[in-house]
Design a protein around this nucleic acid. Structure first.
Lengths: 117, 117, 117, 117
DNA sequence: GTGGTCTAGACCACA
DNA sequence: GTGGTCTAGACCACT
């Protein structure tokens, strides 16, 4: 769900959510994304903000837009896989770097994760 | 190192850095922080920004200021430990939640970490 | 080839392509254009878009339509020549103006062209 | 000057104009760009559109923004030169390709340019 | 005062 | 109906 008190702007939160949906295969059978107006309603945001989401995703080569037609998942067989890999790597790198700065060794980090519910 | 291309504002980056230094014991023998001017020079930031850093750290009960004297690490035996625990928990929660959204199970996450050099 | 990532709309890309074909004499022996349906298939575009192409070419007095018969190249001996002249002039003007804004003198421009393979 | 009847959106026209000014060395002594509000007034556009210009230039690694401070020309010694080269290459490629499609040989193209005033 | 984000609403070009 | 652009105005975070 979108949060307003977050330091992350709404359009980035929506982008992240869509990326996760792509990774989970939500668009593997139908590559067409909801229209900007539908997206706006679905997330409770302004149509302009929704358009910004797709524009940003287009810059990242994740989707492309045809004026008057719609917005589509990029035609790339490995896109879901690559996206998952890239996002996971980013999370891993920043997490491990920060934990290391706090003085955790790799073994300790793994211990911490195992302790979590 | 501080970056401008980061979504994190300067003052938060400095705050995080100082917190990490506290956790690593950099102030355990000398609880006095550098003056705002020294801090500004050390991090290459505006003195106003440096002042904001201490103001924020004060609000989080991590330091206190004596007018005309300086800024000091809060006199709390468990502060380092608590700080480490809180920061680690925040990192862990957000990391595990995001990895889970990407479809990684706990075991897979641990595998990924082991793979990192 | 037609591209969607182009700032040029599909129908203008097709119009330009047809104009180039006219200049190259592709219709000098048979002035009849393909039907809108054939055009749509040939270029992989929507029939509505194909119709728009001919409508636009008609407005520019490049072709004319006979209802129930087809679309034909305008019967004008100098049309190919005029078209070539007009298009070349447009290209030349905008190119020279832009290169000049970038600080290229006429001689430098010619040098650049000679360098191209 | 900006034109509204142009197929080019205003923000792209402004971007092109700024790029040309960079190539011409307008920012070589003072890397700070006008504020978004100043830019808006200077070009007679909405501040949002002005902000969009800088955001786009930032994506192209031509400038960077510091929140609360300003927008600056990227610190890259060869940027002006590279920009000039890239823009010229784009103009040359598209021009030569289009002229060639119209049936002009390289020598004929050079002749055409010499004929221009 | 600077850039960043968001809303609300409008108009356009395209298919 | 779709995406693209622009305006007007507001509020926020940062320096």
């Amino acid at each position: 769900m979108l949060t307003y008190d977050n330091n992350q702007p709404m359009y980035k939160q929506v982008i992240d959510d869509i990326k996760k949906r792509i990774v989970n295969g939500d668009f593997s059978h139908n590559p067409q994304f909801p229209s900007t107006r539908e997206l706006a309603i679905a997330y409770g945001i302004n149509p302009n903000t929704a358009a910004r989401v797709y524009k940003e995703l287009e810059l990242q080569h994740i989707c492309y837009s045809k004026k008057g037609v719609g917005t589509f998942l990029m035609n790339n067989l490995k896109l879901e896989e690559d996206l998952k890999r890239t996002m996971a790597d980013n999370l891993l790198n920043s997490f491990l770097s920060n934990m290391s700065d706090l003085g955790f060794s790799k073994d300790e980090i793994i211990e911490e994760i195992k302790k979590e519910d």
